[in-house]
């Protein structure tokens, strides 16, 4: 299952959840309002580039470090991001991404080999990103357990199936 789009490149490390989704917006829980503020603390032009350039965010290390706020994933989804390729990512952000079915490939150094607007293809199962010229960068394949959650469209769907038919208490 390869995800193809053009790359939007954010050449920064340690982009925290405070920058992806600033604290002043934490009370907003309506997903519709979220795309307008995504990554505001890192680069305000990104939200438009997801519309005009491409849908795969390529970035550096420790992306999503910091707090557990899930808006830091939802706002990316709302902004149309289809996948994230990062050198490394924060743990809680990564779990949130899996649960919400945002594909994330950890591929150290990819950010140095991909330019804004490059057409790339991300394959989570294989753990690879294929560049426009055919060059393949090796990242970390996600395990079967995690891949299943993403493939199912996120953990909410899985839970809904599992608990359907239970009685209220």
């Amino acid at each position: 299952m390869a995800i193809r789009s053009k790359a939007v490149v954010l050449r920064q490390n340690n982009v925290s959840t405070d920058q992806i989704w600033p604290g002043k917006y934490v009370n907003i829980s309506d997903p519709g309002e979220m795309a307008a503020h995504v990554l505001e603390g890192a680069d305000k032009t990104l939200r438009d580039r997801f519309k005009t350039v491409g849908r795969i965010l390529v970035t550096g290390s420790s992306f999503g470090c910091g707090s557990s706020r899930e808006q830091a994933v939802i706002s990316l989804l709302q902004a149309g991001v289809k996948a994230v390729v990062a050198s490394s990512v924060g743990r809680i952000w990564y779990r949130n991404a899996i649960n919400l079915a945002l594909p994330v490939l950890i591929c150290p150094g990819a950010v140095d080999k991909i330019a804004e607007g490059d057409e790339i293809a991300v394959d989570l199962e294989a753990g690879t990103v294929t560049l426009a010229g055919g060059q393949v960068l090796k990242g970390q394949p996600v395990g079967e357990f995690v891949f299943n959650i993403i493939k199912s469209g996120g953990i909410k769907q899985l839970m809904r199936q599992k608990h359907a038919g239970e009685e209220a208490k």
């Binding site: 934490v26 009370n27 829980s29 557990s68 706020r69 899930e70 808006q71 909410k156 839970m159 809904r160 608990h163 359907a164 239970e166 009685e167 209220a168 208490k169």
Partner: peptide, 17 residues
Amino acid sequence: DIYLMVVHAFRAMGGKR
């Protein structure tokens, strides 16, 4: 208290108890 999304997600999963 800032994560009311827990309740939204619980409902979205069809949580009844």
